Amino acid sequence: MRCQPRYKKQVYIWLKNKQFCLLCDEGADGTTPICMACETDLPWLGDHCQCCALPLPVAGLTCGQCLSQPPAFERVIAPWTYSFPIDSLITRFKHNAKWPFGHLLGELLTQALQHRFEDDLPQPDLLLPVPLATRRLRQRGFNQAAMLARWLSTALHIPCDERSLLRTQDTGAQQTLNAEARKKNLRNAFALTPEASFKGRHLALVDDVLTTGATAQALARLLTDAGAARVDIYCLARTPKPGEST
């Protein structure tokens, strides 16, 4: 139709079988819009802490922090390290509303979780996205963690609860704070709705990036204090320790 805008490049449609790679524009090998070469080159998380997924030089170890101060959560599942191009894709999804990049990462996270479920990872009863402060939600217009949780819920057939976790304080951005400052920043930042019931349940918190783990720890402690039997963390990427590269 002549009234339609003229756009010479291929428009990607998630329902079409033929996809083009969102990273290089080459034809994708399957229904996920990423080619094999680009997928292989992603910064996949290698050897890491069995608990918090911190990158480590040797497999099968638990980091010193988790040994000395065991976290309230059981395990972190993250496919990648927070480095190029994953950091750029997450930033464009999170801060520029480039949802196709988020959907792509959500699909790949789904595949990673499916493999882990088939291996040794217990499947949770419920997915809980990390809540966003009201002011930031108004500014951004969406909660990236909630979008990821919805996509995972649909693909993995696990219920998603976006109402029971509340962010009661706007703690501001965490990116510029060190680990201790992040902990202080998050004191009393979260709460549960009065009708929330998690006793004896296996829960999985969903977020985009795990840095110091302060947010994950605060929420996992809140949930275990409410009777949750186990809390896992599902996220897209894990950062190394400050000053370390992967």
Rank of each mutant, 00 (worst) to 15 (best):
C3K: 11
Q4R: 14
Y12M: 05
I13R: 14
L15Y: 06
N17L: 07
E26M: 06
G27K: 04
T31A: 15
E39W: 09
T40Q: 13
P43D: 10
W44S: 07
D47S: 15
Q50R: 14
C52S: 06
G60D: 07
G64V: 06
L67A: 01
L67M: 09
P71V: 08
P71K: 01
K94V: 04
P100I: 00
G106H: 04
E107V: 10
L108V: 01
T110F: 04
Q114G: 05
L132K: 03
L132Y: 06
R136N: 13
R136M: 10
R136T: 12
Q139D: 12
Q139G: 01
F142I: 13
W151C: 10
S164H: 14
S164E: 08
L165V: 05
L165A: 07
T168M: 03
A173N: 08
E180I: 07
N185H: 03
N185I: 05
F190K: 01
A191T: 00
E195K: 09
E195N: 10
G200N: 09
G200K: 01
L205Y: 08
T212D: 13
G213I: 06
G213Y: 06
Q217M: 05
L223K: 11
G227R: 02
A229S: 15
V231F: 02
P242H: 05
T246G: 14
